[in-house]
């Protein structure tokens, strides 16, 4: 935490207290122990941090140029490891695609060191400079790790917001077909826009079609659904059988379960829509035969066809093992409600 604070201090204001120096010395000891193992990792952290420092505080220009030169020499003398690390640092940064920073590092090596010292307390120069430079490395690891996460509350809030947005974007990606393969945000947004537009156009088109298909707009929805059950819904049911929500053969709707399942498929709750239907379902065999009151439907089709189709449907039901709630003994369900005539 202190490290982090130090770093932020470095980056933001370049103000460093004595405590920081102490902290660094302590950290340095630690670092030297771990140096051999974690060298590369540190380099990564150090690298970007250096770049940041360079970027942030390029202003202090001409102070202590000779000092810097000395520092470099000393450092080279002190540790061969440093030499290695320098090379490595550059490599790693190239790998990371931070070529911008690398260039700056290469070109302004001196400036960088200078900056470092400008940032530091002048008194801290008494410490061996090579070690000082090394000491920065563990500090900046944390910066790397928390790079986006600046410590002030504004950036924290911003970060949380961004995370939230990206999470939602993932959901959207799942929802919109063909959006999985696109990586960029712009492309994703494009896809989403297209999808929304296509859906809106479909609504437009379908409403037009509905208007065209029903010239008088006076159709009996009961008939419609009864009819639709035969052909279109039949395939739909088979395709959507895996979804239990489409076939709610629960106890409350048992009386209408024969038709209810079908109409549920369309998304209507039979009792609420008020299907006027007289259902007589003697379950004499394993497949219950449904007799629908022909008086309702004489004008559509003869009841025999109904029976056949319902039997078909029920056989499907049984195949899927979903119609367990069918009554085992004959019953007569009578649902009487308002005649659902859709007058448009």
């Amino acid at each position: 935490m202190l490290h982090c604070l130090n770093t932020s201090g470095n980056l933001v204001g370049g103000i460093i207290s004595d405590m920081t120096v102490l902290e660094r010395q302590r950290a340095r000891k630690k670092f030297q122990h771990e140096h051999e193992q974690d060298q590369q990792f540190f380099m990564v952290g150090c690298d970007s941090a250096l770049g940041e420092v360079v970027a942030n505080s390029m202003k202090p220009g001409d102070l202590g140029f000779e000092n810097v030169e000395e520092t470099v020499k000393k450092r080279k003398a002190d540790h061969k490891v440093d030499m290695k690390s320098k090379d490595k640092r550059i490599k790693v940064s190239v790998e990371e695609g931070e070529s911008k920073i690398t260039e700056q590092i290469k070109g302004n090596k001196n400036t960088k060191l200078k900056n470092r010292e400008n940032c530091d307390d002048v008194g801290s120069k008494e410490n061996s400079k090579g070690s000082e430079i090394q000491n920065h490395k563990p500090d900046y690891i944390h910066v790397r790790a928390r790079r986006g996460q600046a410590t002030d509350s504004h950036s924290l809030a911003e970060r949380v917001r961004r995370e939230k947005i990206s999470e939602r974007m993932k959901y959207l990606q799942d929802l919109v077909p063909g959006c999985n393969k696109i990586a960029g945000k712009a492309g994703m947004l494009d896809e989403i826009i297209n999808y929304v537009q296509s859906l809106q156009r479909q609504v437009e088109f379908l409403s037009m079609k509905l208007a065209a298909v029903n010239p008088r707009l006076d159709f009996n929805i009961d008939e419609l659904f009864a009819k639709e059950v035969f052909t279109q819904n039949f395939q739909m049911m088979q395709s959507e059988m895996s979804n239990p929500a489409y076939l709610q053969f629960n106890s409350a709707q048992q009386q209408v379960s024969c038709c209810g399942g079908l109409i549920n498929n369309m998304g209507i709750l039979p009792p609420e829509i008020g299907v006027r239907r007289n259902i007589n379902a003697p379950a004499s065999a394993s497949l219950p035969e449904i007799f629908l009151d022909p008086s309702c439907f004489t004008h559509i089709l003869p009841s025999s066809t109904w029976e056949g189709d319902f039997q078909n449907l029920h056989s499907v039901d049984f195949d899927q093992g979903r119609s367990t709630s069918f009554p085992s003994q004959p019953f007569t369900g009578m649902i009487e409600a308002s005649n659902l005539k859709m007058e448009m």
Binding site: L172, V203, V213
Partner: peptide
Amino acid sequence: TLDYIESLKAQVEVMRCLVTASELFI
């Protein structure tokens, strides 16, 4: 957008059902 897309989808599906139903009826 998430919410809107979801309900648009539902709307389209229901409308399509109704269209096919009325077409078949006619």
